[in-house]
Amino acid sequence: MPEIKQYPNKLGLKGWVVGGKWGPERYLYTLHRVTGLGILLYFVMHIFVTATRSISQELWERTMAGVSGTFFLVGEYLVFVAFAFHALNGLRLALIELGVLTGPAEEPIYPYKSSLNVQRPYMVVMMILAAAVVLAGGYDFFIATGH
Protein backbone atom coordinates (compact mmCIF):
# COMPACT_ATOMS: atom_id res chain seq x y z
CA MET A 1 0.00 0.00 0.00
CA PRO A 2 1.50 3.36 -0.93
CA GLU A 3 2.44 5.58 1.98
CA ILE A 4 0.08 8.50 2.41
CA LYS A 5 1.90 11.75 3.03
CA GLN A 6 0.27 13.51 5.93
CA TYR A 7 0.18 17.21 6.50
CA PRO A 8 -0.18 18.43 10.09
CA ASN A 9 -2.72 21.05 8.97
CA LYS A 10 -1.40 23.40 11.59
CA LEU A 11 0.20 26.61 10.44
CA GLY A 12 1.61 27.62 13.84
CA LEU A 13 2.65 31.25 14.25
CA LYS A 14 2.67 31.70 10.46
CA GLY A 15 -1.08 31.11 10.43
CA TRP A 16 -1.58 34.19 12.60
CA VAL A 17 -0.58 36.46 9.71
CA VAL A 18 -1.07 34.39 6.54
CA GLY A 19 -4.15 32.28 7.09
CA GLY A 20 -5.75 32.60 3.65
CA LYS A 21 -8.37 35.03 2.39
CA TRP A 22 -8.58 37.73 5.01
CA GLY A 23 -11.73 39.20 6.49
CA PRO A 24 -12.12 41.37 9.60
CA GLU A 25 -12.64 38.25 11.73
CA ARG A 26 -9.13 37.11 10.78
CA TYR A 27 -7.59 40.28 12.20
CA LEU A 28 -9.67 39.79 15.34
CA TYR A 29 -8.35 36.21 15.59
CA THR A 30 -4.76 37.45 15.66
CA LEU A 31 -5.58 40.33 17.99
CA HIS A 32 -7.45 37.96 20.32
CA ARG A 33 -4.35 35.81 20.71
CA VAL A 34 -1.94 38.73 21.09
CA THR A 35 -4.13 40.38 23.74
CA GLY A 36 -4.65 37.02 25.48
CA LEU A 37 -0.90 36.47 25.79
CA GLY A 38 -0.40 40.06 26.99
CA ILE A 39 -3.11 39.73 29.63
CA LEU A 40 -1.67 36.39 30.81
CA LEU A 41 1.80 37.89 31.18
CA TYR A 42 0.39 40.84 33.13
CA PHE A 43 -1.80 38.55 35.25
CA VAL A 44 1.13 36.39 36.40
CA MET A 45 3.07 39.54 37.41
CA HIS A 46 -0.09 40.92 39.03
CA ILE A 47 -0.38 37.85 41.27
CA PHE A 48 3.09 38.53 42.71
CA VAL A 49 2.73 42.31 42.96
CA THR A 50 -0.64 42.17 44.73
CA ALA A 51 0.58 39.41 47.06
CA THR A 52 2.58 42.09 48.89
CA ARG A 53 -0.69 43.10 50.62
CA SER A 54 -0.45 39.81 52.48
CA ILE A 55 2.80 40.81 54.17
CA SER A 56 2.23 44.35 55.47
CA GLN A 57 0.77 47.78 54.74
CA GLU A 58 4.27 49.20 54.49
CA LEU A 59 5.37 46.70 51.82
CA TRP A 60 2.12 47.24 49.88
CA GLU A 61 2.55 51.02 49.84
CA ARG A 62 6.22 50.75 48.90
CA THR A 63 5.35 48.37 46.03
CA MET A 64 2.53 50.61 44.77
CA ALA A 65 4.89 53.60 44.84
CA GLY A 66 7.34 51.55 42.76
CA VAL A 67 4.76 50.87 40.04
CA SER A 68 3.36 54.39 39.82
CA GLY A 69 4.12 57.12 37.29
CA THR A 70 3.26 57.78 33.64
CA PHE A 71 4.98 54.66 32.27
CA PHE A 72 3.02 52.29 34.49
CA LEU A 73 -0.22 54.27 34.07
CA VAL A 74 -0.02 53.99 30.27
CA GLY A 75 1.01 50.32 30.54
CA GLU A 76 -1.93 49.58 32.82
CA TYR A 77 -4.27 51.36 30.43
CA LEU A 78 -3.00 49.19 27.56
CA VAL A 79 -3.84 46.13 29.68
CA PHE A 80 -7.31 47.60 30.23
CA VAL A 81 -7.73 48.11 26.46
CA ALA A 82 -6.59 44.51 25.87
CA PHE A 83 -9.11 43.32 28.47
CA ALA A 84 -12.00 45.26 26.85
CA PHE A 85 -11.23 43.81 23.44
CA HIS A 86 -10.45 40.26 24.59
CA ALA A 87 -13.54 40.02 26.83
CA LEU A 88 -16.05 41.28 24.25
CA ASN A 89 -14.50 39.48 21.30
CA GLY A 90 -14.25 36.35 23.44
CA LEU A 91 -17.92 36.68 24.38
CA ARG A 92 -18.74 36.83 20.66
CA LEU A 93 -16.63 33.73 19.98
CA ALA A 94 -18.19 31.79 22.86
CA LEU A 95 -21.74 32.68 21.80
CA ILE A 96 -20.94 31.60 18.24
CA GLU A 97 -19.34 28.37 19.51
CA LEU A 98 -22.43 27.59 21.58
CA GLY A 99 -24.67 28.32 18.58
CA VAL A 100 -26.42 31.25 20.28
CA LEU A 101 -25.49 33.82 17.61
CA THR A 102 -25.77 31.53 14.61
CA GLY A 103 -29.09 29.80 15.25
CA PRO A 104 -29.80 26.12 14.61
CA ALA A 105 -28.16 24.31 11.69
CA GLU A 106 -30.19 24.37 8.48
CA GLU A 107 -30.25 22.25 5.36
CA PRO A 108 -28.13 24.00 2.71
CA ILE A 109 -30.53 25.14 0.01
CA TYR A 110 -29.40 27.28 -2.93
CA PRO A 111 -28.77 30.22 -2.79
CA TYR A 112 -26.60 29.30 0.20
CA LYS A 113 -26.41 31.59 3.18
CA SER A 114 -22.96 32.33 4.58
CA SER A 115 -22.78 31.91 8.34
CA LEU A 116 -20.25 34.75 8.26
CA ASN A 117 -22.95 37.17 7.16
CA VAL A 118 -25.12 36.02 10.06
CA GLN A 119 -22.27 36.55 12.53
CA ARG A 120 -20.83 39.80 11.21
CA PRO A 121 -23.40 42.20 12.70
CA TYR A 122 -22.61 40.76 16.14
CA MET A 123 -18.93 41.40 15.52
CA VAL A 124 -19.69 45.05 14.75
CA VAL A 125 -21.86 45.38 17.89
CA MET A 126 -19.17 43.80 20.10
CA MET A 127 -16.44 46.06 18.70
CA ILE A 128 -18.61 49.15 19.31
CA LEU A 129 -19.15 47.97 22.91
CA ALA A 130 -15.40 47.36 23.30
CA ALA A 131 -14.67 50.86 21.98
CA ALA A 132 -17.17 52.32 24.51
CA VAL A 133 -15.43 50.48 27.39
CA VAL A 134 -12.02 51.65 26.12
CA LEU A 135 -13.24 55.27 26.06
CA ALA A 136 -14.78 54.98 29.53
CA GLY A 137 -11.48 53.56 30.78
CA GLY A 138 -9.56 56.38 29.13
CA TYR A 139 -11.74 58.92 30.94
CA ASP A 140 -11.20 57.15 34.27
CA PHE A 141 -7.45 56.65 33.80
CA PHE A 142 -6.44 60.03 32.40
CA ILE A 143 -9.20 62.59 33.04
CA ALA A 144 -10.88 61.66 36.31
CA THR A 145 -7.37 60.73 37.61
CA GLY A 146 -8.59 58.62 40.47
CA HIS A 147 -5.42 56.54 40.43
Binding site: E76, F80, F83, A87, G90, E97, A136, G137, Y139
Partner: peptide, 24 residues
Amino acid sequence: HVLAGLILVVLLGLHMFGMHLNDL
Protein backbone atom coordinates in the same frame (compact mmCIF):
# COMPACT_ATOMS: atom_id res chain seq x y z
CA HIS B 1 -11.89 26.87 28.50
CA VAL B 2 -14.97 28.41 26.85
CA LEU B 3 -17.04 28.24 30.07
CA ALA B 4 -14.18 29.73 32.11
CA GLY B 5 -14.00 32.56 29.57
CA LEU B 6 -17.70 33.31 29.99
CA ILE B 7 -17.36 33.28 33.79
CA LEU B 8 -14.31 35.56 33.51
CA VAL B 9 -16.28 38.14 31.51
CA VAL B 10 -18.32 38.56 34.72
CA LEU B 11 -15.53 38.19 37.32
CA LEU B 12 -12.86 40.19 35.48
CA GLY B 13 -15.52 42.69 34.44
CA LEU B 14 -16.41 43.29 38.11
CA HIS B 15 -12.72 43.57 39.00
CA MET B 16 -12.03 46.05 36.19
CA PHE B 17 -15.10 48.15 36.96
CA GLY B 18 -14.15 48.24 40.66
CA MET B 19 -10.48 49.03 40.08
CA HIS B 20 -10.41 51.07 36.87
CA LEU B 21 -13.86 52.56 36.29
CA ASN B 22 -14.36 53.54 39.90
CA ASP B 23 -14.44 57.28 39.21
CA LEU B 24 -17.12 56.80 36.59
